[in-house]
Amino acid sequence: MRQIFLDTETTGLYHAQGHRIIEIAAVEAINRRITSNHFHVYLNPDREIDAAAQEVHGITLEFLQDKPRFPNVVAEFLDFIKDAELVIHNAPFDVGFLNSELGKIDAPNVVEVAASIVDTLKMAKDMRPGQRNNLDALCRHFGIDNSKRTLHGALLDAELLAEVYFAMTRGQESLMMDMLDAPDESASNESVVANQPLKVLQADSEELTSHHQYLQGLAKGGAPIWGLPETD
């Protein structure tokens, strides 16, 4: 199964107020193993960044001035997430921003391109009701090293999210490993049996006589439906 762990950074909290995406990161995993394949890009939003948002991710408008705009990377991005299961922490936020950007250029939305979307924040709330379930809290809970996360960054957060998700679904990992690694014993046994010569043991005259006498004893109450074998 191909999964994409995705995160974005933005100029503010609400795309309906005109805020834009300034960073996208997507990390690929196949059969619950991270690959070297990932998508990561910074984007020029053509607008100011809210001060509160900049305090969170530390990305400045000056840094983004020479970066591509969303239409320049959209084809590569959609190709990367195509037919994959997207795993996102607080999926409505990121998907909402992505669909807002895609809608501006009449591109298909995320739901139409990806196979499915998993919201790890919802998963965490179901597992840990009434507790803090942001990424830092989940890293602490599962013993994942997030010491490099002094600021939010989409690529690091996507990588941490993958570790958190694997920890949250560890039972599935065990099942997957069992399915992938277990030897096919039935096939092995069939091969062993098929390669063995078939031994046929014939009854000797004494055994046949004893068997005939046993059947005669059973027949005293009436003729058995299977009949008695003939003897020499």
Rank of each mutant, 00 (worst) to 15 (best):
L201C: 08
T120E: 05
I144R: 01
N146R: 09
M176K: 07
L156C: 07
T169L: 07
E190I: 00
N134E: 04
M123T: 14
G143E: 06
G153F: 02
V193M: 10
L160C: 05
P197K: 05
E173A: 12
P183R: 01
N146M: 01
M168L: 13
D136W: 02
L201D: 00
V192G: 00
D157S: 08
V164D: 07
K148G: 04
E163T: 01
L121T: 12
V118L: 10
S186E: 13
M176V: 09
L156W: 04
M176T: 12
L121I: 09
N195D: 12
F142W: 08
Q131K: 15
E190V: 01
M179G: 04
T169H: 14
A187W: 09
L155C: 00
L175P: 06
R132A: 13
M176N: 10
P197R: 07
A124E: 04
D184A: 05
Q131V: 06
N195P: 02
L155K: 02
M176Y: 11
R132C: 09
A158T: 01
A167C: 15
V193K: 10
A154H: 03
K148M: 13
L198F: 08
E159V: 10
G171S: 14
D178L: 14
M168W: 08
D145G: 06
K125E: 14
D181Y: 10
D126L: 06
K125F: 05
A154P: 01
A167V: 09
L201T: 11
M123H: 06
M127I: 05
L156R: 07
S186R: 08
E159G: 00
D126H: 08
Y165V: 00
M123P: 01
V193I: 14
G153W: 03
A194H: 08
G143Q: 03
D184W: 03
Q196T: 12
A194N: 08
E163D: 14
V193F: 06
I117N: 00
Q172A: 15
K125W: 11
L198K: 15
A182K: 14
E159C: 05
T150H: 13
G153V: 02
M179E: 13
A194C: 05
A182E: 09
Q172I: 13
P197N: 03
V164I: 07
G171M: 13
A182Y: 08
S174W: 15
M179R: 09
P197M: 04
R170E: 12
A162N: 06
Q196W: 10
R170A: 15
K125P: 03
A187N: 09
P183L: 03
L198M: 06
S174D: 15
Y165C: 04
K125G: 07
A194I: 00
V192M: 07
K122A: 14
V200K: 11
G153R: 11
E159T: 10
Q172N: 13
H141M: 12
L156S: 03
L180P: 01
N133P: 06
M177G: 00
G143M: 01
Q196L: 15
K148Y: 06
L161Y: 00
H152E: 05
L121Q: 14
V164P: 02
R140H: 09
D157A: 01
Y165S: 06
I144P: 00
M168N: 10
N195W: 07
A158E: 00
H141E: 11
L175Q: 14
V192I: 13
